[in-house]
Structures are given as C-alpha cells and as structure tokens.
Nucleic acid binder design. Structure first.
Lengths: 335, 335, 335, 335
DNA sequence: GATGAATGAGCTTTCATTCAT
DNA sequence: AATGAATGAAAGCTCATTCAT
C-alpha cells in the first residue's frame, strides 16, 4: 500500500524542482533573505517526505538525499546571483529544521563548509572559552560536589544543590541539561584536571624508576587533597548510558597510549619489567592498589596522613613483597 | 565461550575502548589537541580508501560513509570527554582534508552543525536589522503563528517564538503583556482581516444566490491560502477567560445583524428560504459545513486543491442533496 | 574498524552453537525449566550482538535473524525431548528479553505460534473483558471528562482528576500510562460509543431520505445529551503525535466505507444526489453543519432546546436554502 | 505545488487515511470484528504474492515482509481505535492462514507478543510451584542480584525483582523489610561466601609464597565466575547509614587480624617483607590491584579470560615491576 | 502466606515572567 | 529599547511501601 521508492523519488523530484524554481521567493528585491518563507517551504517538504516514507530509517535516508541535493542547488544558485552570504543563513535555517524533525545528519558540500568554518573567528577554536559566565556554573558544580559526596548522587536532590549554590533551581537547568548531565560534567572536568596534573608531572624528564616514585607521590597527594572529588569519581554510579567510573576510565584510556609509549621509552636501562602486553594490566592494577589504600584511609576516618603510605606503595609496586633487601628501610617509615 | 586474548585483539578493534586509544593519539601529553596528528591519520585513511576503490564515484561514496561514521564517533567521544571545542577544530581539519582530496561532500550530524553555526557571531548573519517597532511586532506575530500552528499553543514556548522572530524573549513581553495576550492579539487581528475580506465581497451589489456563490468561493480561497491562520482561529484553545474559537465567533456575531439585514434585503426574488428566525442557524451551519470540508482537506495532507470542493459545497448549501434536477450539472463540475 | 557482517555471522554462529549445546543446562533432571539460566544466557547473547553491530538497525536485523533461528532450534529440540510445554515458557522469557533490549520484532515459526494461541482461553478473545476491575477506571475517566471539560486539558491537572475521582494520583497512573493516554482513552471510548450509536440507527432498514432524517435527529439528540463529551471530542487539543479531533476523525473514517456503500445502496429511487466521489465531502460537510449549530447552542448558553434546530438542519441538508416549496413549513417550527 | 484530485488518488493509497478505510471493511456495522472478511482479504493477498513470486523461498520472504508490515500497521491502528482485543483475534486468524499456505514463520512486534503471552493463564506456564520458604527467598535474592547488576540498585525497581523471581511484590516484603534490606542481605551473604572461600584456601598448610600464589589464583577465579556478585559488592551504593562497599570491607576487616597472624606465622623463612605495620596497607592495596584488573576485564567486555592475568598479578605483587631476573619467566607465561 | 491494587511523598523538569544590565 | 540570565511555581510522573482480600 505504501509507495515504492521510485515513486517517492518522482514525488520529491516534482517538489524539489518546485523549490528550486521558488528560490526567488525567499529574497526581496533588495536582496534580503526571507528566512521565514524558506523555513516554511523546507518544513513542508520534509513533512511531505516523512508522510511518504514507511519507517524512520527510510525517512532519514530520503530526507538526507533530498536535502543535500537541494542545498547544493540552492547554494550554487545563490553564488550565481552573487549573494553567497545568504547561503549561510539559509544553511543555518536548514540545519535548524533538520534538528526539529529529528534528522540526525545531512550531507553537505565540502567547499561550502569550508567557507562557513573560515567565518568562525579563530579564537573560538582555541581551547575552551569558559571565562566570564562560568562563575555561576562553577558555584553550582562546587555545590553539587559537596551534596553528591554527602548524600550520594541518588539521594541528593537538585533542590539541595541549588540551595547550597545559592541559585534558583531553574538556574541549575540553564547550565546543565539534567541532574545526570550535572554529574557527568562534574566528573568530566574533574577527571581531566586530575589526569592533566599527572600528565604534567610525567612530562618532566627523569629516569623511569624515579618518575614512578614521583608520580605515585604526586597522585597520593592529589587524592589526599581532594578526597571528595576522588571518591565521587570512583563512586560507580549507574546512569542512563554509562556509569560514573567509566567516565574516568575513558579519560584514562584516552591517555594510555601516549603514556605507554613514554614509559617504554623512558625505560632506558631496561630495569623495569613492563612490556607492551603487560602495561595496561600493571598500570591499572597499580592504580587499583592506590585506590584501596585510599579507601582504607577513608574507612579509618582519615585519622592519619595518607602521604605516609607512599613509601609502602612505592616499595610494593617497584619490588613486590618478596625477596631482596633493597627496600628494607621503607617499612620503617610507615606509621 | 570465552575467547583467548589473541583472538580478541581484532575484536577489540570494533570496541569503543580501542577508539579511546586511537583518539588519544591526537592529544599531546598536556591534553591539547594535536591537529597535525589527526590530519596525518585522516590523510592516510583517505589515501588508503582511494587506493582501494576502483573509480572516483566509488571513492567518494566510501570516503563519505567512512568519514561521517568516524567523525560521529570521535565527536561523540570528545563530547563525553568534555572537549566539545576540540571537535570543532577536528571538524575543520577534516573538511580541509576532504577538499584537498577532492571529496565534494560529507555527511554530518545535525546537532553538531547546530552547535557550530551558533558560534558564528550574529552580526555576520543578520545583514541589516533596523525596523520600526511595528515591523518587530509583526515579526513576532508571524513567528507566533508559525510556532503555535506547528506545536499547538500550549506546547509552543515563548522562547521558540522569540527565536523564530529573531528577537529576545524580553522584547516579546514589551509588545505583548503575556503569551495569552500574544495569542489573543493574533486572533483578533486575523479575525478582523478575515471578516473584513468577506464583508468587502458582500458589499458588491448582485443577486443573493450569486452573492452566496461568490462568498463561498472567496471564503474557500481565503482559508486555502491561510490554512495556518484559519486552523489557529478554529483551534479552540482554552484560555483564562475565554476560548480562542469564541474570539472569532464574537467578531462574527458582532457583524451578523448587519449581514442578516443585507441578506434578507438582497433576497428580492424570495427564492432563498431563509427567514429572520433561521438565518443564524443556516449561516453558522453553512460555516461549519465549509469548516469540515477544510478539515478533511487538512487530514488528507492538503494533497488536492481545496478550491475543487467549491462546486459541491455550493450545490449542497443551495439545493441540498435531494431532489430536483436543477443542479444536475453540479456533480459534473466536481472533479 | 567495525567488523564486517560476515565476521559477525561467524561470531554469532560460534555463540549460538554453544547455546544449542547448552540447552540441557536450562533443565533440571526432573524436567523443570530454569528460566533464570536461560534468561541470563539469552541476555548475554543479545548484548554481545549489540556490542558487535554498528548501529541500531543492524543490531535489530542480526538479533532477529539469530533469535528466530535459535528459537526454532531450541523448540524443535524440546519437542524431541518431549517437553513442548517448556517451550512456551522459554518463548515468553525470550520475548521479555527482546522487549528489554529494545528489539521491536522477532520472527517466529507459525506452527509454534498456533500452538500458543490455541492455549489462550476462548473467552479472552471475544469482545473486551472490561468488567470487574473497570469500576475505578470508569470513575477516573468520568472525573477526567469533567475536569478536562471545565478547565481544558492543558490547564487541568492530574491531581484534580484524581481528587475528583476520589483516588490517589498513583492510581491514575496505574490505569493510564500518562495524562495524554488518559485523554486518548477517554476520546477513543467515547468516539466508539457515539459512532456505535449512529451505526445502530443506520442498520434499521428504511428509505434513504427517511434514514437521513432519523440519523440527524438521533445525532442532535445525542450531542444535546452529552455536550461535555462532544465538546471534548471536538476540542482539537494538540498532543505529542496527534490531535484529539483526529482521533474521532479516524474512527469516523474507519466506518466511512461501509456507510458509503450502505448509503449508495439505500438510494434505490436515486433521489439523492450523492456519488462515490462526493460522498466524503457531503458527509463531513454535513457533520460540520451540525457541529456549528451545536456550537451556536453552546455560545447561547444552552438557553434553548438544541432539538428545535433539527428541522432547519434537515431541511438545509436535504434541500438547500434555495428553491422549491416542499419545505416551507420547516422554518416556522423554528423558535 | 498542489496536485489535482485525480493525481492523488494513488498517492492517498500510501496515507494512513486509506488504511482506516481498509480496516473499516473488517468491521460490521455494529462495530464487531468480522474475522471472515479479514481472513478473505488476507488469503487473497497471500495468494497474490504466491502467484507473483518465482520460487518458494522468494514467496516466503515476500509474504513474511508483507505480513509483518501489514500486521504492525493494523495492530497499531486497532490500538489507536481502542480495540486491542480485536488485534489478538486478527492475529490468530493471520497465523492460521499462514500455516495454511505453508509459511513457516512470521515477524511480529515484541510488545504485541508480550501482551498476548501475558493473557495466557499463569498455571499453564508454571507446572509445579511448591517450594520451601527458603527456596523462595533464594529465588528473590537471585533475581535481585540480576536486576541490581543490570540496572544499578537505584534504577532497579522492586517490581522488576519480584517479576523476575516470579513472586508477587508483597512477597518480597515478607522476606525483606525493605529494598535496602534486600540489598544488604544479598551483600552480607555473598561477602561471607566469598571470604569463606578464601579462608578455606588459606587454611591449607603451605609455604607463604605458595599460599599467596594459590590465593590470588583462587580469588581471580572466584570473581571471574561471579562477576555480577563481585561487581555489586564493589559498587559503592550509598545507603541510609552505610555504603555497600563498606559492608564487604567490614566483613573483611573482621577477619583481618586472624589473617595477619597467620600470614606472619607462615612467613617462616622471612622472605616476605610484610610487617605488622604494613600488612593492612599491602593486603588492601593488593586487593585493589586485583580489583582494577577485574574492572579492566569488565570494560573490555569480558572478551578474554580473566585467569590469563593471574601470572602478571602474581609477579607484580610478589616482585614488583623492577629489578631482578627472578621473574623473567613471568612475562612469557602471560597471554 | 501470597497477592497486587492502592497509595502519596517526593522527585525531576519546564517555562512564563521578571528585571538588572 | 533591547536583552537574556535568573527565577520558582507548578506540573507530570515514579516507585517503595502498605494492606485488604
């Protein structure tokens, strides 16, 4: 009962030719662009495609093909008419409409994209532009860290976060799409900071064994100074699609290849028994070692200085618990 | 059931964990994005695709599919990592490379494009924006009509109206004291226009039967040309004190006595069986007749020309569906 | 990077063979079925397929193929082992898991389906079984009708409905998936009732002209007796996917073909000028005629008896407003 | 832009409006479902497909696609019309016809199948259900483990647990005083089992180094066999008074003194560098080491055998990553 | 003992409106 | 005059828990 694909192509062909013929309509005599008229026409066409396709996948497919062809034609036409600027606005309108009808992607001419991208000021592309308006965002994130740490993510309420941050609940939702998004942002930013800190230390040039000692020390210090943050990152909260610990893990894993390379290259004297194959396991295992020493510290109510554990950790990870005398002194330093 | 590690090295290639590792290569130790590394990798992949495809068309096809999938993945993962800015630079690099190898187009996620386009400063897109206060009010009302028609009054947001009108939300409230007031103004103005249009036609002097024919034709044409407006007027939205349909009805009713007088006076030959008592019922009933013919047209997706229904409507309202031969011709006129 | 389809087939092939081999595991020595074990294994397989497919469509496709093959095998195996009953439970488990992972459909052996369907008690298939537990549901729907009519759907709150129905808010959500679902159910049931009522009248055998007179009278009486219900049905509330008026329209349209056939066949004397082509327009137009006579009545505060309008309506629809003397009397009956 | 009516007669074929008209044919004037009409129409369509296909395979293929699309459409529309019961009868009819024409399978919507299966009386599926109270408790705990692992404790609902366990929700509350109590019980029992298992191994008399090797191996095996359980224990869910990880930790800590004593006493040759002071740190750190190797395994989708990691873990914990040749062989054993 | 309909406190989220800039 | 971040009341919905049958 539904039409065959061929029929649709014809159907659209007729409409799109029409659209092309009507381009003139979207521009006044003075060359100004009538966004509204164009938008309406576009919406009508997309709706028509939707109605004439069987399922969502088919709709997306056809709409994509149709749209990219049409955009190409219109853009060319505008270039011919000497109004390339208008094509950007037209393009923006098109993209907005696509979003609205739920089209996930569109095919676009590369030269046109180039043109658009070059018109974006350069500073927008460098690093993040989180400067002025982030004061409030930071306040909300700080409050969220406190509240989530205290009560646990699920028991915490957005009300409590907003109250602690001293803003209205609605403001939380201006900065974060949802409670979940707030947590994710918090973790993402924190994870980055944590790992940047370690990366910074790793960039200092020294012998590998020394490097390991320094990193362990730095890491322990970091988590001792930010226990709430660290605990939240490791808290393993199940979210819609992921799980908080995985967010951190993903960050870690992104940096692992570079790290691995560096470690293997630093191992000039070949004293360290880590190979390409065992690196991941040893690295993550060692991470876990520190993680549980931290956890023990928490369980003891932070009644001692976590930094005191550094020698034992270092000793264990470098030499294990068996054998040689090289590290006999280490154990005495311990509490 | 479990596979040995060797077996799954390849398998892991398809897992996201691997992707992280790959993306990791594009970032320096300090977390900054290495455009060069990405460009190199991209160029290598594109070259490889070119070498493995027979003709240009095939190359373009494969490259497009590959690239859009790849970009989507990387962009998603960068978002997860909290580096959406990097994805814009990466995207720019990708487009540049595509241009270089002669790829004419790429498929891109609409949400991502939206993000990019929003970062282009407004003045680049606006050309001139210097309108009298009244123009702005009109723009807002036009936008409101579009948005309300699309989503329904209650589901529509003031944000959407303001956005489509290209003004700030606050400006909407400068011109209209509330969302409801905006709707009411829209309806009041439109109702007047609609009824003025009909009144204008009624003022032409002719025989009553002819007048009726002309009015029906004009009215059908009017609503066929302004379906959104008409639909909104008839939409029966419940407001604080009234109901949108009543606004139109009130306008109509205000003019009814004059109309009635004119109709009765035009009925010189007394061929029309309308009395003072039955006028209202017949008039509104006939209005309703057209209303549902219009509604039928909407439900069929406006896929035929509403004006084609004029003969049937006229015939029915003038002669009913029964009897005489006086209107035998009518059915032939119809389609 | 993602695997080719062929690879997946092999991958699944390996797993599924395994599953088959493991069927024994799901049954204890006494022949009882270990639903849990089977469910776990199934879930693992589905998850594995999801992880090894690129997009959702591909996942659905593969999962469907895999599942239907496997089910067939297992069911055969169980039949061989002489335990066909177990296959129903196994099947139920499979369907549940498919729902959970978001698979929209599965392919199934017809003979097996036959077996299952025959085990459903017959009375379940006849008409609806809305008997005992519907007392509360009815109460909620009644309350909803009142509240929605009074305040309009959007201004009405679920709290108010629950309160008026004398139940807790949660109970509303036990019977209806959402506020929208409540409205839809209300309209669906009411529309059916309304149209059944008319259909009933239409089934009485009489001359067409007489039939039309009777139906109009009955219809006007019906809406005069249920103005709230009728108003709600016509209220044109925009919902997520439809619009309330369309719900009624769809019901109407479902019955239209039968109605059309009957009308044309009843038209023995060929006095009625309705053809196959004009039927829809005339029918819906006439419906609209009555609709606005009803609306006029509402606007006049129901200060007169709507039934008094029946003669005028009938006269107009049968003979129009022009010409003959046959209906001269009708107008005098009017108020 | 607009098409003439003639042009769109075909077009409408694809619109849902048409579908309504078609479905309308299956219903008698009184609204009851006409099985015969539907069966006739179905048989005609299937026969037509058979005649238009070359071989049997092609017929089956086409018929399946056609039927599943058709059924889906009709079922959806019947749901909209508020007649879901009719869809079951219709479905039964369809299956019967498929059997008759020799179609071996049909594709069906899972949600619809779910509905049908739920209408089969329970006793048909249950066979025997006569278990001691303890069996029921176990069944609930098993179900809880599955559900909590899958969705996370907070996202999991008691309904889901009860359903999976095959008991009523109230029964869950007979055995556990709250959802939290259910989780705690689960963890307490499991933690005990886990630790008893390790204790058992520790009670075997052997040299300490050997003991450590054996314990690591046993532990890895245990968690590889019970990943859901282990994950739940480590999941760090924040409860009213505690936190799930703490429950395990408390169990562990209760046994630590005895363990410590035993370890130190076994260290006859004093080859192990663990003192009274460092025992806790080294023990928990090592535990964490394994924990993260396990976590890595999870993140890789359990695509390799966790036991393969035992040599690396053992080597690291015994000898560290630096120095001597004593463990040169370790890397070869790996993978 | 088992059941599952009923409950309602409490949550997240939306969005019309305001108002400092 | 124009802006758009901030507001917070108000709404829809969930689900652990209870309890009559």
């Amino acid at each position: 009962m539904k039409k065959k694909k061929e029929d649709i192509v014809e159907l659209l062909g007729g409409e799109s030719t029409q659209l092309f013929a009507e381009i003139g309509r979207y521009f006044s005599a003075d060359g100004s662009f009538s966004e509204d008229e164009f938008r309406r026409s576009l919406r009508a066409s997309l709706t028509s495609i939707r109605n004439n396709t069987d399922d969502d996948a088919s709709f997306r497919n056809h709409a994509d093909v149709w749209l990219s062809t049409k955009l190409r034609e219109i853009i060319d036409h505008l270039h011919d008419r000497g109004m390339p600027e208008a094509s950007i606005r037209l393009f923006k309108t098109a993209v907005e409409e696509c979003s609205r009808v739920g089209l996930p992607k569109v095919s676009l001419p590369t030269d046109f994209l180039n043109e658009i991208l070059c018109s974006i000021p350069h500073h927008k592309l460098d690093k993040e532009r989180k400067d002025t308006p982030n004061e409030k965002k930071t306040r909300i994130m700080d409050a969220a860290l406190t509240v989530f740490s205290q009560d646990g993510y699920h028991r915490a309420t957005v009300d409590a976060v907003a109250h602690l941050a001293g803003v209205a609940k609605g403001s939380v939702y201006r900065h974060f799409k949802s409670k979940e998004d707030l947590l994710k942002s918090l973790l993402t930013v924190s994870s980055s900071e944590m790992l940047d800190y370690v990366n910074h230390i790793l960039s200092i040039d020294m012998e590998l064994e020394e490097q390991i000692r320094v990193v362990i020390k730095a890491w322990v210090e970091f988590i001792a100074n930010n226990p709430d943050l660290y605990r939240l990152i490791q808290s393993n909260i199940q979210l819609e699609n992921t799980n908080t610990r995985d967010i951190f893990f993903n960050h870690l894993f992104t940096r692992l290849p570079l790290l691995k390379e560096r470690v293997l290259s630093l191992n000039r004297k070949n004293r360290i028994r880590i190979t390409n194959l065992t690196f991941d396991t040893i690295f993550l295992g060692s991470y876990g070692f520190v993680d549980w020493v931290f956890y023990k510290w928490l369980r003891f109510g932070k009644t001692y200085d976590l930094r005191d554990e550094v020698p034992v950790i270092t000793e264990m990870l470098l030499h294990g618990c068996i054998g040689g005398t090289s590290s006999a002194g280490a154990t005495e330093e311990k509490i």
